[in-house]
C-alpha cells in the first residue's frame, strides 16, 4: 500500500524542480505571482513580485476552478484544462496538475495573454510528469 508520507529526498527534489519552473514562469512579462495550490486551497509554493494575499488566492482559485469544472460538465465539455479570469486589473489563470494540485498565475493587465497561456500550456506536462513520478515513489 502506498503511503502519503514520503522520504525527504524526493520531496526536496520535487520542490526544487517546482521552484525552478515557477521562477521561469515569473520571468514572463506582466506575471505578478505564480503559485502551486493544493486540493485544500493551501499554497505549497509561490513566487510573487507584488503584495499577494496567499491564503485568499489559494482558496479562491480552488473555488473558481471547481465552479468552472461544474459548468463545463453541465454543458458536456468534460475535462476543464484551464480557467482564465479576466479582471479589471489583470488575469488569473488556473490549471489542474495532479492529485488536486493546481497551478495559479496572476498577471497585470498589460500581460500578453497568448504568451502567458502558451508558456503555461507548455509547462503543464512537465509539472504533471513531476507529480506523477513523485506520487509513484
Amino acid at each position: 500500500m502506498s503511503s502519503n508520507i514520503k522520504s525527504i529526498d524526493p520531496r526536496k527534489a520535487l520542490s526544487l524542480e517546482i521552484d525552478f519552473i515557477l521562477h521561469n514562469l515569473m520571468r514572463i512579462q506582466g506575471v505578478s505571482a505564480v503559485a502551486m495550490v493544493d486540493i485544500d486551497g493551501l499554497i505549497t509554493h509561490i513566487r510573487h513580485n507584488s503584495e499577494v494575499n496567499t491564503d485568499a488566492i489559494g482558496a479562491s482559485v480552488q473555488v473558481v476552478f471547481g465552479a468552472a469544472t461544474k459548468a463545463a460538465l453541465h454543458v458536456g465539455h468534460h475535462v476543464t484544462n484551464m480557467v482564465i479570469c479576466e479582471n479589471a486589473e489583470g488575469y488569473i489563470l488556473s490549471t489542474p496538475i495532479d492529485a488536486g494540485f493546481m497551478l495559479a498565475m496572476v498577471t497585470e493587465r498589460d500581460a500578453l495573454l497568448g504568451k502567458v497561456r502558451f508558456e503555461l500550456k507548455e509547462t503543464i506536462p512537465v509539472l504533471k510528469k513531476l507529480f506523477a513520478n513523485y506520487l509513484l515513489k
Partner: peptide, 8 residues
C-alpha cells in the same frame, strides 16, 4: 498570436 491570443 497563439490560438487567437496575443503573444507579441
Amino acid at each position: 498570436y497563439h490560438d487567437g491570443l496575443i503573444l507579441a
